[in-house]
Amino acid sequence: MVRYLKLVKTLFRQSMQRELAFRANFGVNVIHSTLHLVGGVGGVVVLFAHSDTLNGWDFSQTLALLGVYLLVQSLKNLFIGPSLAALAGLDGHLWTGEFDFTLLKPVPTQVLVSLQAWSPWALVDTLLSIVVIGLAMRTAGVPHCGDLLLFLLSLFAALGLLYAILLFLAAVAFWYLGTPMMWIFDSILQMGRFPIRIYPHSMSLILTWVIPVGFIVTIPAEFLSGQGTAMLLLPGFALSGLLVGLASHFFRVSVRRYSSASS
């Protein structure tokens, strides 16, 4: 474990050094993050300029949801997204044949594939998302310690779900080396900007249990705004664990299929 932490530290530091080599990139990333934030918060403000609630969600709750959405996105963009994109994205290691070298490393392939690339600027988004969550809590009132704990637990399960889905989609590239499937999930995750209850019932069920965007964004946000159902946490963890297990198995089976890019 200590070895992996050292490895993560080295990989993160290297990513940071790489980013620092491109000074203009810092400014561009800050502008991008700010615009992203202003667009998101602006949307919620515009929405509530004409209505007090959105299918039972008030302004502060919707703002909290946006904050959770941005937080999940930023954590995804910190390492899970870049790492898996380095494997299965366009020009990824599966395309170039560099995955050969990943397979030869004396570290579990899934661990290396999931931690190999970091995007340190995503931490700016993480900070901004925490500011948004703080603003929402300031408007709605600070949640109870119990709700905060449930929020953190549900966020943990949500990240597990997110990782499992992305790992599964990245592993699809071993079978089908076309348009990266992770792009499709990015579009679906956008639906998590809004409470899943605003969608028709059947769709909201799909978004909770089939493509669990609800579990990933809405349910943690519900705990944050004191309207969560603690009973959902257990199946959420079970689903998260199950999907991580299944995705890992699928990844292993897919790696066996790898026939290496041509010499």
Partner: peptide, 20 residues
């Protein structure tokens, strides 16, 4: 093919290898 990290220094690539 290369396993050196394109945007990092050579020494940095060696350090990653050392940790792995």
């Amino acid at each position: 093919k290369t396993q050196l990290t394109w945007d990092n220094t050579v020494h940095d690539s060696f350090l990653i290898h050392k940790e792995i």
